[in-house]
Amino acid sequence: MSFWEVTQELFRGFGVTLELFILTLVLALPLGLLFALGSRSRLRPLRFLVRGFVYIIRGTPLMLQLLVVTLGPGILFGTQHALTRWKCFNGNANLAYFCGALLAFVINYACYFSEIYRGGIDNIPKGQWEAGQVLGMKKSQIFFRIILLQVVKSILAPISNETVTLVKDTSLARTVSVVEVIYAADRITGHYALIWPLFYTGAFYLVFNFLVTWCFTTAEKRLSRFRLE
């Protein structure tokens, strides 16, 4: 297999990596905020439930969660209800495994993000809430118009860290048969006895993480027009 052919094959795999990455990020960022609000809720049962859930997810390996999500349905409901046979997937095993992996990633990352959000929200001085209150603003208005952007600014660095980690963590999806870039390389290695395509995948991650980091640096610059109190 020529270098060009390998590159094409890896790009196909990296497409899946990207899909997994982008969808996870887009879904986990708002879900994490929801979890963060839940874990700060005044309703005790909700607070305990969310905190307990976050504790479990953060305390167990992502690899295990991937297995639970993809194999769990089959074990729970018997093999005829295995994930791939679910109606919504129409027998498309690739789609079923991809969605299973996506679910595990979203939940896992939402939990990590929620802890970052929670710290960020707690760090905003109470005076910001009170200033909004005495001006007659509603709690939700205060949160979305005043607090949120300050939280975003203060948590940009840890979120950037998690995001870079997510780019690399997507490779775990291969354990549940999602053909992302490393799996694609591994197949070439198997078929053609070539080792170098495996190492070549590193370049894909490096270049992409360079872009991710650049995005965060740009966001940081744009938010540097103001300083937190």
Binding site: P125, G127, Q128, E130, A131, G132, Q133, V134, L135, G136, K138, I146, L149, Q150, K153, F226, R227, L228, E229
Partner: peptide, 19 residues
């Protein structure tokens, strides 16, 4: 909120919205 709007408050720490 309606009752609260009878009053305004200026804080010791200003509490301006930084953004």
């Amino acid at each position: 909120r309606e009752s609260r709007l009878h009053f305004g408050l200026v804080f010791q720490q200003f509490n301006l919205f930084p953004q």
